[in-house]
């Protein structure tokens, strides 16, 4: 009797989860790569983030949207502790990657930045050859095997769809590439060291539409292997590339949900006003 009840309730539970998934209801995710818990952040006396609770699933793209100064870039820079280089900053609460706090004492920040790659708005290749730009990260990580380095350079360039464009001029300066190519080179450089998470701060806002499309295609390809958090001012871009979207306003996380929900039926009026262009 007990056995039957157990089987029935298990099936019932499985069905419930299936229905919830079908209906797009947010089911508690098993595989959380990044978790912010009551994260607050201060620049001196000014509070920039207020009690942010946010989870980012593995192999997904999370878009952070919101008007300028809303805290989305500050949040992004907390993830690889890049804010540490600014004087008088302070964080409260916690941020965990694979359930490990990145704020715990003696935490290896260098290792963190190896695990969390970052791509900026303005492409910033090193003033070196195309090959060296990608090989550099491997070399400072102690890789000496020439064959391994060459193979990784080629693979990284292939994964960023740059290989065919540059394979005959790997020794040329990276500065000779176009803006869009430079940005893809920076992404190739980031993935060469196999990070867990890639942060992107408006990676396509300085690019033409064709280069933008290539970057967006790349983001969709990269999520198979990485977890991506992207800050964008371009709402359509957020809708196109992300699985989840988080809306920030004045340092607070107003709403986070599946991207399709945020862009068709957001829960909060403030989110609706922002994405329909009524303020921002």
């Amino acid at each position: 009797m007990i056995l039957i009840v157990t089987i029935v309730s298990k099936e019932y539970l499985v069905n419930l989860i299936r229905i919830a998934k079908l209906r797009g209801i947010f089911v508690a995710q098993q595989n959380i790569k990044l978790r912010a818990e009551k994260l607050s952040f201060y620049y001196g006396p000014a509070q920039a983030l207020y009690d942010i609770d946010l989870e980012v699933e593995s192999n997904s793209v999370m878009a952070l949207i919101g008007p300028s100064g809303c805290g989305k870039s500050t949040f992004l820079r907390c993830i690889n502790r890049m804010n540490d280089i600014i004087p008088n900053v302070r964080a409260e609460g916690d941020l965990k990657i694979d359930d490990e706090s990145i704020f715990k004492p003696n935490f290896d920040v260098t290792q963190l930045r190896r695990n969390v790659g970052m791509v900026f708005q303005k492409s910033n290749p090193f003033p070196k050859s195309i090959f060296e730009n990608i090989a550099y990260g491997l070399k400072i990580n102690g890789v000496r095997d020439r064959y391994h380095i060459e193979k990784t350079v080629e693979e990284s360039l292939k994964r960023t769809a740059l290989w065919d464009e540059v394979k005959d001029r790997l020794d040329d300066s990276a500065m000779s590439l176009s803006g869009g190519q430079q940005q893809r080179l920076c992404i190739a450089r980031t993935i060469a060291v196999e990070p867990k998470i890639i942060l992107m701060d408006e990676p396509a806002s300085a690019l033409d539409p064709i280069s933008t499309q290539k970057i967006e295609e790349l983001i969709l390809d990269l999520k198979k292997n990485y977890t991506i958090v992207i800050v964008t001012h371009n709402m359509q871009q957020a809708a196109r590339v992300s699985d989840y979207t988080a809306f920030f306003f004045m340092g607070k996380l107003i709403e986070v949900n599946k991207t399709e929900v945020i862009f068709t039926k957001p829960e909060k009026q403030m989110t609706e006003n922002y994405i329909t262009g009524k303020f921002g």
């Binding site: 709402m235 359509q236 809708a239 862009f263 068709t264 039926k265 957001p266 989110t271 609706e272 994405i275 329909t276």
Partner: peptide
Amino acid sequence: KQPAAADLR
């Protein structure tokens, strides 16, 4: 115009 939310609906 790429409308969203209520506008899209």
